[in-house]
């Protein structure tokens, strides 16, 4: 039990260090210099990338096939959020179009993979 607490504290310290680096490091602002809070959007992108790294860990380690399929689904939703954040500071509305198309595609793909897991034909 104490072993688990020690591991929890170590993980917390590592995560806090990563957050401190993301939030405090003076990132160069390349997009739209006149926009208010332009640096915050870049930090938001970095936090979503951290979530994607967690997902990649689960894809790499996942003991069973359903684990990996779940993670693919979650990755699709995260990419939609990434596109939404990216569309604000650049001012391009077609990033949201990419997000909608990605959401549709990943929904259909997930349903097909779930049917495949059940071991049925696709026309049922």
């Amino acid at each position: 039990m104490s072993n688990r607490r020690v591991r929890w504290v170590i993980g917390l310290v590592i995560l806090l260090a990563i957050f401190a680096v993301i939030l405090l490091y003076p990132l160069p602002i390349l997009m739209y210099p006149g926009l208010p809070f332009a640096g915050l959007y870049r930090r938001a992108l970095f936090i979503i990338m951290l979530c994607v790294i967690f997902c990649l860990y689960r894809i790499f380690r996942g003991p069973t096939a359903p684990d990996r399929i779940i993670t693919i689904d979650i990755l699709g939703i995260l990419v939609v959020g990434f596109c939404a954040v990216l569309s604000i500071p650049t001012g391009r509305s077609w990033y949201i179009d990419i997000g909608i198309a990605w959401a549709l595609q990943s929904f259909i793909g997930t349903l097909a993979l779930a049917k495949y897991l059940e071991g049925k034909d696709f026309d049922e």
Binding site: I100, A103, T110, L111, A114, L117
Partner: peptide, 21 residues
């Protein structure tokens, strides 16, 4: 709106598929 409607459906399908597999 689309995400709120479809994400639970795919979770449902995945849970069923995982249990049946």
């Amino acid at each position: 709106t689309f995400l709120l409607l479809t994400a639970p459906v795919s979770a449902h399908a995945l849970a069923r598929g995982a249990h049946k597999s």
